[in-house]
Design a binder for these strands. Structure first.
Lengths: 242, 242
DNA sequence: ATTACTAAATGGCGAGTAG
DNA sequence: TCTACTCGCCATTTAGTAA
């Protein structure tokens, strides 16, 4: 017999008030308010939680005290550890596509001392002078490119040199064909579309893997934890307290 | 419009299969099995999740691929962080009671070199030769005593000296009257009941607080995280995979 | 084999209300 | 005031079934 989400929220609410090591004084109207539900439902939930052995109730006069049982705590811990096992683990973004020859500016830009210095300092390697252009194949890869362009946290600043200005870009480190260190570049004003990434590496990738145009390659970016943007924070969860 | 628990489980299940950075192939019977529900419910859940923008579906031939959206990920993260905020925080166990004079053996035992050495090494202080007996007042305190006796992780070994054997005990560090370092002892073969704790401390507590029999005292034990026993592991949560 | 509709059963909800 | 009952009502479920 599976518990409802609201019931879990109620349990969490009680636990949040130290309900495991203290008897917490609760009233069904107060609980109802905290859960955004009716008094009747709050009453039902407490009855249910008690029946399932997740809480213990004790009436002193007309006020009731509730204490979360070990079973109840375990219920919360189970949910928590299940979530944690899934969420607190590295997230892999794979970009798969085919090599193609671009406009050939990559080599020029990468070898500019301003850029090169920043790559060395912020990415930790001295890039081979040139970018490898990859046209992404699957919708997943294109989707991942979009996500990564937001996650990428290595900011390479633009600069000006005389009357010429050079734009900024973002980068993020990854692995090329599951073996070589590389970085994916997200150039602010690129000539390419959403289905293209430009990759740099300390090694000459075309040579290292004997790549010709049209060959399939794979870039893997691993995000240590959940570093994913949390722009939408529509928290509709338990508000703890009275 | 609040989501159901089963729907959350479904979302988690999809996410667990790298559903955020990969399109996951799902079938409603398989999902139903993983969730312990019917095929029809699985179908409805997917429809619902898609309607709420938490997943995206894509049909290729007769198989459908599902991908968790950023909104969907945020939903999981919200739940997770809410749980974490409550669970991953120190837990306080308060024992309140009144001082009473016991059989007077405490001083003898504590001053035995074997015990004393272990206290010093495992608890980090040299105990005043004597225990303070506290008779617990509230049901919460008695409950907490029971819990702490299971949580207590400082094991003091028994020993024998000639023909006499001295029993083992467990202890856990705490704070006496919110100011002095102390430890609660859980003696294996005690003469006292479940409503009594024996407390030791580097200082002479009776003197330090001017305690007479019947005076109220409070011992607080703080457990860093959730170190609580998880004997009951009735996991009825999402089983990940096919 | 799928997915997902409709129908009937179940279960949860809030309003009203008793104790 | 409180808790928790009953009662309609609506949501969610499963079974059957269509596509």
């Amino acid at each position: 017999m599976a518990l409802n989400l609201v019931a879990i929220k109620a349990l969490l609410n009680l636990y949040a008030q130290n309900g495991f090591s203290n008897s917490v004084r609760v009233s069904t109207p107060a609980l109802a308010k905290a859960l955004g539900t009716s008094q009747q439902s709050a009453s039902r939930i407490l009855i249910r939680l008690e029946k399932e052995g997740l809480i213990e109730r004790r009436s002193v006069g007309r006020v009731t005290y509730v204490r979360v049982t070990e079973l109840g705590l375990n219920k919360l811990l189970d949910l928590y550890t299940d979530l944690r096992a899934v969420i607190e683990r590295p997230m892999d973004f794979v970009l798969e596509g085919r090599v193609f020859t671009g406009f050939g500016e990559g080599a020029y830009y990468v070898s500019l001392p301003e850029y090169r210095r920043q790559f060395r300092e912020k990415l930790g390697f001295d890039p081979y002078p040139g970018t490898l252009n990859v046209r992404l194949l699957s919708v997943d890869s294109i989707h991942n490119r979009r996500l990564l362009s937001k996650i990428a946290d290595v900011r390479i600043e633009g600069f000006r040199n005389g009357n010429r200005t050079y734009g900024g870009l973002k980068a993020i480190g990854g692995t090329f064909n599951d073996s070589e260190l590389c970085a994916v570049l997200f150039i602010e004003r690129t000539h390419y579309g959403d289905d293209v990434v430009e990759v740099i590496s300390p090694v000459y990738l075309r040579g290292r893997f004997g790549l010709k145009d049209g060959d399939k390659v794979r870039v893997r970016v691993t995000i240590p934890k959940e570093k994913v943007e949390r722009e939408q924070v529509g928290g509709e969860l338990v508000s703890v307290g009275p």
